[in-house]
């Protein structure tokens, strides 16, 4: 009988990512309802010392798979390692983060373990003894409640949605042999390109800070660059700004430029003509900063600030820095 709520913790460069704590805290909550233990799988090379941190958020047991073959992350290796320990222990629920890595791994595991997976969940609960996962579908135009018949019931959780709650447990560390041979892997990470500035295309960016006619000139974009750096985003521009020669053509967002759909679009000094809206209105969240209270962009914005962008943007940058620190 499958038992226990498990998570796959995520670490990068020897540090646990915040999603791991969100997973641990959520798993704890679920486990408390079913009266189960929370176990975490921690994979990597030389990462055993991280296990204790997970205990702080309610993890009872940490299965550590430590091997050079597990660093850096490669789907095959991690999927094999997780599948091995999961098959040995038969948990009822397995949670992963819906991060880039977590999504990749979760889907492979669903195949390997021949079970169901609910991706990118915004809520998970126990109903009738089973995991009920709530997740957005159709780009958030509706939500689905997902129930998986087989075990483990896998769900990946959307980052930054689930609260982190401390619940200290003396996490028991169980080392296991991931049984992964680096030489056998078909995929190899050749290079990790850290500095992606200028490499990430606007259309791929999760956050875009965009400036229009209100930027007054090319110099104005410095503050947008700073904010974009803080948010790991890109800088975009309206057609007016590109026409004026303030920004290169490749930065243009709109009907005749690029059509983007980031999670967050911050429009600074952009009035919001339809040709611009056509390029960004599918962004998940829109912030508008503009002096003109009647600018049409405010009708599309989730959050609007009617004020001088040259005063607001630097403050927003430092506020975000504080929150992300």
């Amino acid at each position: 009988m499958a038992k226990g709520v498990w998570i796959v913790a995520e670490q990068r460069d020897g540090a646990l990512r915040k999603i791991s704590f969100e997973l641990a805290s959520t798993a704890r909550k679920l486990a408390d309802q079913t009266g189960d233990e929370v176990s975490a799988i921690l994979l990597g090379s030389g990462i055993e010392s991280l296990a204790a941190q997970l205990g702080k958020y309610g993890v009872d047991k940490v299965y550590v798979g430590d091997s050079p073959a597990l660093e850096p992350y490669v789907t095959e290796a991690h999927a094999a390692a997780v599948a091995k320990i999961v098959k040995e222990n038969d948990p009822a629920i397995l949670l992963l983060g819906a991060s880039v890595q977590g999504k990749d791994l979760a889907a492979r595991l669903a195949g390997k373990l021949a079970t169901g997976l609910a991706t990118d969940c915004t809520d998970v609960k126990i109903a009738d003894g089973k995991l009920l996962a709530v997740r957005p579908m159709y780009a958030g135009k509706c939500f689905g409640e997902i129930v998986t018949g087989s075990n483990p019931q896998i769900a990946s959780l959307r980052p930054n949605v689930f609260p982190v709650a401390e619940n200290a447990k003396a996490a028991q560390v169980v080392k296991f042999d991931p049984a992964v041979d680096a030489a056998q892997l078909k995929s190899k990470v050749l290079e990790v390109q850290k500095d992606t500035s200028g490499k990430v295309d606007l259309t791929e960016a999760n956050v875009i800070v965009s400036g229009g006619r209100g930027m007054k000139g090319p110099e104005g974009y410095a503050i947008l660059e700073e904010l974009a750096d803080t948010l790991h985003g890109c800088v975009g521009a309206s057609r007016a700004a590109v026409d004026a020669g303030w920004r290169p053509q490749k930065d243009q967002v709109g009907q005749t430029g690029k059509v983007v759909s980031p999670n967050l679009y911050i429009a600074c000094g952009i009035s919001g003509a339809i040709q611009h809206l056509a390029g960004m209105s599918s962004s998940k969240y829109i912030v508008a900063i503009n002096k003109d209270a009647e600018a049409p962009i405010f009708a599309k914005a989730d959050y609007g600030v009617v004020d001088d962008l040259f005063k607001v943007v630097p403050e927003l940058n430092s506020a975000c820095k504080k929150l992300l620190a």
């Binding site: 669903a110 169901g116 997976l117 609910a118 009920l132 509706c142 409640e145 997902i146 998986t148």
Partner: peptide, 8 residues
Amino acid sequence: KAKVVKTI
């Protein structure tokens, strides 16, 4: 395997 039991 994963059933959408309800759409909301």
